[in-house]
Design a protein around this nucleic acid. Sequence first.
DNA 1: ATGCACTATAGATAACTATCTATGCATGCT
DNA 2: AGCATGCATAGATAGTTATCTATAGTGCAT
Lengths: 329, 329
Amino acid sequence: MNIRHLTFRLLQVYVAVVRAGSISEAASRLHLTQPTVSQQLKRLAETLGEPLLESRQGRLVPTEAGAELYRASREVLGRFDDFDDYLAALRGGERGRFSIALVNTAQYVLPRLLGPYSQAFPEVEVTVHIGNRRQMLTRFERQEDDLYVFSHPPSLAHALAGRFLRNPLVAVAPRGHPLAGRERIAMGELLEERWLLREPGSATRMLFESWLQEQGLTLGPTLQMASNEAIRVGVASGMGLAVLSEHVLPPQHPELVILPVEGLPIESHWQFIVRRDRRLSHAALGFLGFGAQRLEECVETRFLSNELPGLLLRLEEVQAAPSGLGSDP
Amino acid sequence: MNIRHLTFRLLQVYVAVVRAGSISEAASRLHLTQPTVSQQLKRLAETLGEPLLESRQGRLVPTEAGAELYRASREVLGRFDDFDDYLAALRGGERGRFSIALVNTAQYVLPRLLGPYSQAFPEVEVTVHIGNRRQMLTRFERQEDDLYVFSHPPSLAHALAGRFLRNPLVAVAPRGHPLAGRERIAMGELLEERWLLREPGSATRMLFESWLQEQGLTLGPTLQMASNEAIRVGVASGMGLAVLSEHVLPPQHPELVILPVEGLPIESHWQFIVRRDRRLSHAALGFLGFGAQRLEECVETRFLSNELPGLLLRLEEVQAAPSGLGSDP
DNA sequence: ATGCACTATAGATAACTATCTATGCATGCT
DNA sequence: AGCATGCATAGATAGTTATCTATAGTGCAT
């Protein structure tokens, strides 16, 4: 038999006939004329090289071969119905997978959004990659992920961005610091202190350094630690001062104080970055949609800055019809 | 998605592409040109409304939807390969089912053929119906079975016949019968004996009675029993005489003797009868073929009379191409 | 025997499919 | 920069399919 020209439609028609036990009846159920169904059947039987139905007491009954074809057809059609459901779930963003790459500092906050999302969409597999800004940039260049979180986005030539959270950088000092009570402090007064800095390649450090440059200031003694946590604990235990994202501080932080330095906090925003040239998975889109709607419930109001609806709109323009392949940059 | 125009061919092509990881490679494996495959893919993706493949480092890799389609396709194609095997087995007569209707007396002999056949083709389901000639005729009229075994076939207008076994009817008497030693006996001498007869509608009785009529004889006292076995035992225990198929007698029958009556044995043959208007199942054909080849090994040589090869030839002429339906008389 | 219900066949047509060759475009290696 | 490789698009064509209307044949029930 030549399977090539077998269509699913043909199987549907065949199944309908077996169920109806009559060609005419099947035809009317399928909204076709009787000769159409007769012919389809004939062609099917010829394709398979076996008669499929016999008339028995006025009712059409499958032959041995026909019965097996009926079984096969039902399985096959059922399998494709399942596939259809799967597709629907994919499209609805209820299922699938996406990966998201986070700049280190954002890991303190993103779970607030990811957690509720995963609860709502347990069938979606999310992969989270975390590293410093430089590492994330590499991933971005290589297009390894669906979504990226940066505070300062890289070139937006191939990407779209949407802010979703304020990320203020503040100066912190240990609780007993001499200037802790002051209403206003000039940065100049602090240059002789020892400063704890993140490693080069970190976004926090980059922001702090370019701020210093703007102010025309240069730090005195510094000490480098590759982790926000380590720095926070270091400051608390008197090793020095630091500029950190407010999100790094626990809600209660009795052993630390925020210094009211003039020009601080450095205002920045975390944003979701999406490559324009990579098709976004439905699941990732679903996640952004979830954020657009539910961000308010997930993060503290004072940090809120939800540009996600706008991002989604722009995405819709970019992501259009399906083609055989997703394009490759 | 519209499943209607989905062909198995399309799925085969898709599977080939996923396996090859490249359109060009798949095309060459399929002996198609690359644009052909490109287009098929495009159409497939459009039918399903989702992109199926992405280019990743020069290799085509399925998307989420594509991966699921690949799974579904393989299952579905596999299912139809199985179906194909099933068909092949059906065609080869290795599998399937048929039913055969036997005149009572034939049940002593047909198992000799059916037994070895079933051993050789254990996947074929055989149904055997047994009854007297009249009952079998009814089944024949109603076309309830694939094969029939008669000694005298009904009208052959709608049927083909092929002899396969001699069925001589002999007169039997109890061992001590006064005429048992004689070399030749005239039927006339036995008319006053009591005769045990099968019921009306039995073939054995019919043959005996028409033979008597030819001879211009009439029986004296008779006694009717609806079973060959009962009659054989009845004769052995002195209830009377009988005319029975030689096949009814066990190989050794010390308590019975065959009387050398003039004009006996009545010669008849069992034959397979096949309706011309009913498609014969491959399995039934296989059974006849088995008989044509192996009958010699299954029955005693003195009963042999194998016309089955001829019957098969005539059948081949009648049974032709497959049509959507088997025809209905 | 007459009619009803069902199936098969014929003939027509618009749409679609499979397949090709030729060509253009992007990517990545050297 | 240039070439090789691989994919996409365009245009052509023969063949196939889906579907219809009209009509003929068949078997069952009255």
